[in-house]
């Protein structure tokens, strides 16, 4: 048990280090610009005096590492600075949108993860059956389609032709839960289709791989019934890879959510980020990047820790 704790602690330390390095990259990447934010803002109208004035105002006359640590100190306290385009507090811009994005991602994950694992295990157990083949064709097509294609197809059929769901997802914080779920139905289904396909393919491969290992063959030769082989022998060893697969694919949610939010004009973080990229509003882009990257790192860290904690060989050392 001690060994497990040490490994978990190591992973957490490594995760924090990664987070630190990534935050530095996100902040310092701007330094690669030939000019800096001041010349960016002023564009053609830049004179040495105005540039110097703006630099002083934004604190750009200080060296990069000092600005970085000041920024980091602010971020840790929930203060991302001000937007260049609107001069509003970034924290204020992000707040409600972050909750909206989390809500959408949670709904999509809650539907897709159980569905995908169930389908993946079934496809692996009934390998090469008609069911397996049709599922395989479906998933191959789903991962080959751009997210915006799936999203617009859903809009075309379910919003425009049949009219069951709204094509634009309008949500606000004081909507009742059912209304919110109804509003995010189509975006959530889009994300679900993509994630289910990915998780399913990888779950299937994992289980097939596992079922061909010697200890499963041993269990079969002992004459155990199939359900007992799956539940007692296969599953305990399958958790770690499956959890890994799930978490890796939840990362697809992060890139998927950006496109889907734009299609459905959903007021989330992804849309804010794209808008800010178009306006070249760097502080907002940096803030969004950091939030997405941090989520991604935390997800990967969780996967690592869960696979350590659920590994039978580590839990019951000889």
């Amino acid at each position: 048990m001690n060994k497990v704790l040490v490994m978990v602690a190591q992973r957490i330390a490594l995760g924090l280090l990664t987070l630190f390095v990534v935050s530095a990259i996100i902040f310092l990447a701007v330094e690669l610009l030939p000019g800096d934010i001041a010349t960016e803002i002023l564009g053609q109208t830049a004179t040495p005096e105005t540039v110097a004035a703006i630099r002083r105002e934004l604190g750009l006359d200080q060296p990069a590492y000092i600005r970085y640590f000041e920024w980091l100190l602010g971020v840790v306290q929930g203060d991302f600075g001000r937007s260049l385009a609107t001069d509003r507090e970034i924290t204020e811009l992000i707040g409600a949108r972050l909750l909206n994005t989390l809500f959408l991602a949670l709904v999509a994950a809650a539907v897709s993860v159980p569905l995908a694992i169930g389908l993946g295990v079934m496809a692996a157990l009934y390998r090469n059956s008609t069911f397996d083949r049709s599922v395989n064709i479906f998933t191959l097509s789903a991962i080959s389609m751009p997210e915006f294609f799936i999203a617009y197809m859903l809009i075309l059929f379910f919003a425009v032709r049949i009219g069951w769901f709204p094509s634009l997802s309008k949500v606000d914080l004081d909507q009742p839960l059912f209304d919110r779920l109804y509003a995010v139905a189509l975006p959530a289904v889009t994300l679900t289709l993509v994630i289910v396909a990915h998780i399913m393919r990888m779950t299937r491969a994992t289980i097939i791989n596992l079922m061909s290992s010697p200890f499963i063959e041993m269990a079969t030769l002992k004459g155990l019934p199939p359900w007992r082989i799956v539940v007692r022998h296969a599953l305990p060893n399958a958790w770690a890879p499956i959890v890994n697969v799930v978490v890796i694919n939840l990362a697809y949610l992060i890139s998927g959510v950006v496109v889907v939010e734009v299609v459905f004009v959903y007021p989330g973080l992804g849309q804010l980020m794209v808008d800010s990229v178009v306006k070249r509003d760097l502080p907002v882009v940096q803030a969004c990047s950091l939030i997405f990257a941090a989520t991604y790192i935390v997800l990967n860290l969780t996967a690592d820790i869960l696979s350590i904690v659920s590994n039978p060989r580590l839990l019951h050392p000889r």
């Binding site: 390095v21 996100i26 990447a29 992060i254 890139s255 990229v277 882009v285 969004c288 990047s289 991604y296």
Partner: peptide
């Protein structure tokens, strides 16, 4: 490479496209 892969690809691409 580890560090570059720690940031989601689309997000990293968006950040770099803003800068460059």
């Amino acid at each position: 490479v580890d560090v570059l892969m720690a940031i989601p690809l689309l997000i990293f691409a968006l950040l770099l496209l803003t800068i460059f």
